[in-house]
Amino acid sequence: MMKIKIVKNILDANDQMALENKKLFDEAGVVAINIMASPGAGKTSLILKTIDLLGLPVAVVEGDIASTFDAEKVGAKNVPVVQINTGGACHLDAAMIRKAVKGLRLKGARILFVENVGNLVCPAEFKLGESAKVVVASVPEGDDKPYKYPGMFSAATAIVLNKIDTLPVIDFNMKRFKNGVHAVNAGAPIFEVSCKTGEGLGNWIKWLQKLVS
């Protein structure tokens, strides 16, 4: 038997494709943002609110295991949108993005929001060609999520804590949540928002505008 030294990243094929996607986005003048969260945290709500407030042209890729609900909601805003149905896969990968954006009008858009499949585990591992990873957490999920899913929170460029309008009725220790985030990710800003009332969205919008300026 013969041993062959390889030392190759297992996700090398995906990483290479992600690099190509990034190049494609750079050429189109668009900044891709990978939005990740558990199901129901408010990824789509955040994208919809952001489209209203941002004042910049955007495009959207919606990733779901099944259905086109989210793409329909975004499409109603007259924004270029494409839905990926992964058919069971728990995350988007770079090849899916490559295929999806072929049918998308990127020219003119400043930000491409990629809404990943609702899941706090797998999407963190797969680069898509994004410039920033945003993790959306929400108050009803509890303050322990950064402790339970350190991989996801450590990968984030920024964290949006949604549904802060429910703070009065939910046992959620803000300090514990923030400590948990900063334990695994010292530098990421945390935006406390409510997509329902609009509270706190201003700082998030400013951050996005700075990101693309």
């Binding site: 038997m1 041993k3 062959i4 030294k5 390889i6 190759k8 990243n9 996700l11």
Partner: peptide, 10 residues
């Protein structure tokens, strides 16, 4: 997360 080596038949 990488492959270090593989063993193949001679």
């Amino acid at each position: 997360c990488y492959i270090e080596s593989i063993d193949v038949e001679d």
